[in-house]
């Protein structure tokens, strides 16, 4: 069983142990590009004055990602924040707001969100972007089904030339598109 979720919706979600104790809230969703999936979350305390926490939540420690809380087994599942991502990455490598560029150098728009397929793992299956003039009309919010590995950094997401034609407007079409692409074995994906 898995469900599609947008990564930014997880920011601020409370992190709660199965014993019912609140540890904090999700601060950053850490997307490890080489794996094509989310590998963990950095945390912040709850409340107005709470700052970032040193301990972070690796994906292996997640019991469930629910609509109202991220559940974890207990307080032993944490790692140090530095194990999850470099400090500079946390500061400067926010994918949201980055440019979506094709391999040919055309800007398709800016990244608005990352779509995750959350089950046993949290795979990145696509992006929500705000279109540029390259996908008229400009300024539209569309979904780009793009499972698998892509080149991404804090400044840009580089996608194959062909994907501009794949963008869809709603989540139902997106789901269908993702399922069809993902049914093709990893090595045979045409968009590589």
């Amino acid at each position: 069983m898995s469900a599609l979720m947008q990564a930014t919706a997880l920011v601020g979600r409370p992190v709660v142990t199965l014993a019912g104790d609140e540890i904090g809230q999700v601060k950053d969703v850490v997307y490890t590009v080489a794996d094509g999936r989310v590998t963990g979350f950095t945390l912040a305390g709850r409340g107005l004055l709470a700052g970032p926490l040193r301990r972070a939540l690796p994906w292996a420690g997640v019991h469930a990602v629910g609509p109202d809380a991220v559940m974890i087994r207990d307080e032993d599942v944490f790692t140090d924040r530095d194990e999850l991502a470099e400090r500079t990455e946390l500061r400067d490598h926010n994918l949201i707001g980055g440019t979506v560029l094709t391999e040919g150098g055309t800007a398709l728009g800016t990244v608005d969100d990352v779509v995750l397929d959350i089950g046993a793992s949290a795979d990145v299956v696509g992006y929500r972007l705000v279109t540029s003039e390259a996908i008229p009309p400009a300024g539209r919010s569309v979904l780009l089904p793009l499972p698998g590995k892509v080149a991404a950094s804090g400044e840009a997401l580089v996608v194959p030339e062909s994907v501009a034609g794949l963008v869809v407007d709603d989540l139902a079409e997106f789901t269908a598109a993702v399922r069809s692409v993902r049914s093709v074995p990893e090595g045979e994906r045409s968009c590589a």
Binding site: P14, V16, T17, L18, A19, G20, D21, E22, M71
Partner: peptide, 10 residues
């Protein structure tokens, strides 16, 4: 029932 803590009952 599996837990009851600062955030809620699980």
């Amino acid at each position: 029932l599996i837990g009851c803590g600062s955030y809620g009952v699980v």
